[in-house]
Design a protein around this nucleic acid. Structure first.
Length: 493
RNA sequence: GGCGGCGUAGCCAAGUGGUAAGGCAGAGGUCUGCAAAACCUCUAUUCAGCGGUUCAAAUCCGCUCGCCGCCUCCA
């Protein structure tokens, strides 16, 4: 089965045929660095991180470019507010972005260019557009003349006349057509500037992505991604710039992720209903957030709430608990031990073996279908259940059984490396969750341990009344006891 | 107003022509001194509603209702 991706340009799923066999070029619009990132940014970046990883997993030699837009009105505004140079702001939030992405466990893109390092390339494209009559200088600014590009709005499927009729577009005196957009803006006093054929100024929004993608991926490349809200005007304008300047197709497959909603409404700066990645990571661990994001298809909207995050965590705990059980068995039984010579599996063992055999094909099938991570997770859970079942019924483990569960462990590592999940030691991850929850409990862990010992002694003396008193007391405090043959452990409910 | 998307069990969520994955929550059972965890069983004759195409539709078409997004900075 070949990889199929939904292309915003055609509105259909298309089979991915790389421009160059065995290679894939991918450009994703990064952030304008003027503030901390919110969960919407987390989703976009996690989604494309997984697409990047999956393309590599599928055998492509991937060049992944994710830019920083480090010059922009919003950055300048913030610098003015704080009375500092614009670069103080951009550097601060580039650092913050890098920290956030590292905490989320994102793989580093191949290149992470900054707009301000590509002013030369930006000016070259604008000059080409002016020379070809697609752009015009006007009082220190340079604008793109949208009516010179007949295919304008082909990505968003809009109609130029109707949009102009909408009249919500600001008409600047400097523009010939209200829909024209700035390629270059003359600088006002006190603003950062670069020399250009049109005087001192700075690039408009949109042009930096045309310049940086061309620099690292060429005039035509495979994938271009971003949030749905970038379709218009940002990506539409990139197409107009790049295709008019280069005279060839810009992007072959356009990918757009859906929004993160709060109560079914888009999370956004202007609505003020956003949570920063940092705030969320104070309450939930990074893999829980990732798991939550992957539990829905990347193009669907996803509703963010504490309850949904908690549910995601419960689901992830189920998987990690299974992996911890596997570890426990594999660590308990040394390979040198004398093992039962049973060389055939029970019915449940055969069922697990079947799940194991189908595991990767099913994972690949789901991911090949427009990166359907939700479906992929379904297959993972089915394997978890089969594994739990097998572990529950097995009193002793034959070499065949041990190799089967070791195989499960290996498979989870394999898909985990694509999804960015299960990357931690299961026991450690579960301990981390436990201690994070324990912080919200008003009882110290050494007190819990003391009571467990007292209860164990009481139970050994058949004093179940005292034992149950302790258990109920702890339960009231939110502590759940788990008795097993190896002793009693505890969990925060 | 224009364009686009969505509506699947109590909740989250796959499924885009062949007879409803998975997770959470809930009920019963096995296990247990009793519990918890784990495991087993059950929980949508039906996919917003109404028509149509088809041997066959949650999936295609039309209409209606509801929700959301873009059209202005936005992941």
């Amino acid at each position: 089965m070949p990889l199929r991706v939904y292309n915003t340009l055609s509105g259909e799923k298309e089979t991915f045929v790389p421009l160059l066999p065995g290679k894939a070029g991918m450009y994703v619009c990064g952030v304008t660095v003027y503030d901390y990132c919110h969960i919407g940014h987390a989703r976009a970046n996690v989604v494309f991180d997984i697409i990047f990883r999956y393309l590599k997993y599928a055998g492509y030699d991937v060049t992944y470019v994710r830019n920083y837009t480090d010059i922009d009105d919003k950055i300048i505004n913030r610098a003015n507010q704080e009375g500092c140079d614009y670069s103080v702001i951009s550097e601060r939030f580039i650092k913050a972005f890098d920290e956030d992405m590292a905490r989320l466990g994102l793989a580093k893109p191949t290149v992470e260019p900054k707009a301000t390092d590509h002013i030369g390339g930006i000016i070259a494209i604008i000059e080409a557009l002016v020379a070809k009559g697609h752009a015009y200088a006007s009082d220190g600014d340079v604008y793109y003349a949208v009516d010179t590009f007949p295919e304008y709005l082909k990505l968003s499927g809009r109609n130029l006349e109707e949009m102009q009729a909408g009249a919500r577009v600001e008409v600047g005196d400097k523009k010939r057509n209200p829909m024209d957009f700035a390629l270059w803006k003359g600088s006002k006093p006190g603003e950062p500037w670069w020399e250009s054929p049109w005087g001192q100024g700075r690039p408009g929004w949109h042009i930096e992505c045309s310049a940086m993608s061309m620099e690292f991926l060429g005039k035509t490349f495979d994938f271009h991604g971003g949030g749905k809200d970038l379709i218009f005007p940002h990506h539409e304008n990139e197409i107009a710039q790049s295709e008019a300047a280069n005279g060839c197709r810009f992007v072959r497959y356009w990918l757009h992720n859906g929004f993160v909603n709060i109560n079914s409404e888009k999370m956004s700066k202007s609505l003020g209903n956003f949570f920063t990645i940092r705030e969320v990571l104070d309450k939930f661990d990074p893999e829980t957030l990732r798991f939550f994001i992957l539990s829905a298809h990347y193009r669907s909207p996803i509703d963010f709430s504490d309850q949904n995050l908690e549910e995601a965590r419960t689901g992830l705990e189920r998987i990690y608990s299974c992996l911890a059980s596997i570890d426990e068995v594999l660590n308990r039984i040394p390979t040198s031990a004398e093992l039962p010579a049973v060389e055939c599996l029970s019915a449940i063992g055969l069922e697990l073996q079947e799940k194991v055999a189908q595991f990767i094909p099913r994972f690949v099938e789901a991911m090949d279908d427009d990166f359907n991570t939700a479906q992929a997770l379904g297959g993972i859970f089915e394997t978890v259940r089969a594994t739990n079942r097998f572990l529950a019924e097995s009193k002793e483990f034959s070499p065949v059984a041990l190799s089967l569960i070791a195989h499960v462990q290996h498979l989870f590592d394999e898909v985990g490396s694509v999804l960015g999940l299960f990357t931690l030691n299961p026991g450690q991850w579960l301990d981390g969750i436990k201690s994070a929850k324990a912080d919200q409990i008003d009882i110290a862990s050494d007190e819990i341990e003391r009571l467990i010992i007292e209860r164990t002694e009481a139970r050994a003396a058949k004093n179940f009344k005292r034992g149950d008193e302790i258990r109920d007391y702890l339960l009231e405090k939110g502590i759940q006891l788990l008795d097993s043959a190896q002793g009693t452990t505890w969990n925060v409910k």
